[in-house]
Design a protein around this nucleic acid. Sequence first.
DNA 1: AAGTCATACAACCGCCGGAAT
DNA 2: TATTCCGGCGGTTGTATGACT
Length: 210
Amino acid sequence: MAKSDEKRTLNKGPWSPEEDRKLIAYITRYGIWNWSQMAKPAGLQRSGKSCRLRWVNYLRPGLKHGNFTREEVETILDLHQKLGNRWSVIASRLPGRTDNEIKNYWNTHLSRRLKHNLMPKSQSFQTSIVETEPKSSSEIVLPPANAPEASFAETSGAIQLPLPSSNLAGEIDQSQTFEELQSILEQSFTAQGSYNAENSEAINAELEFL
DNA sequence: AAGTCATACAACCGCCGGAAT
DNA sequence: TATTCCGGCGGTTGTATGACT
């Protein structure tokens, strides 16, 4: 098929649970070797970029989703003040969070607040943070100080998953349930010595919605 | 209840830098 | 050295959902 035809037939938009499952299964079995070439053998009509984005931002084990903790928000504010829009650098300081997630959080929650507070950046954030119920959705609300702390387990970057030679390699097929995939992912992390309870929670969270 | 507006966030696009050839 | 390819980054858009009138 010509490249232009391939481009035309590529899926766009939201990922389906089935596509997620295929990507997880493929990466669990073969690891990450070349995004642009992985999609086809994985059975996905997606661009390599799309696959990479989906994995990095949502499927990768160890990711946290949901509300940012007070510590995380403070870290974002602090680092953004120092670094500007260097989201990937900021994300590297917030294990389990992605640059895209932080960027979205900034754009929807924090930047508007900055705009409304026509004060020097360094002061505006400190004084605009509220710790009670928000008066409007645009107001920054920090979690209580006793909220669970952010995990600092290292989770960023590509992971090394077992290759086909491992015992896990032959265990995945198209009819695999997510419970089974979850188990295999956990085994993958155990095998590489990076599995822990936080990974477990993250894997659960990732697979739950599927 | 229906229509409109605002918000949140998943995903895409274009660009850039580094590695490979 | 020049070219090509790939991965990564930041900006932006599209859409689903909730709030409001």
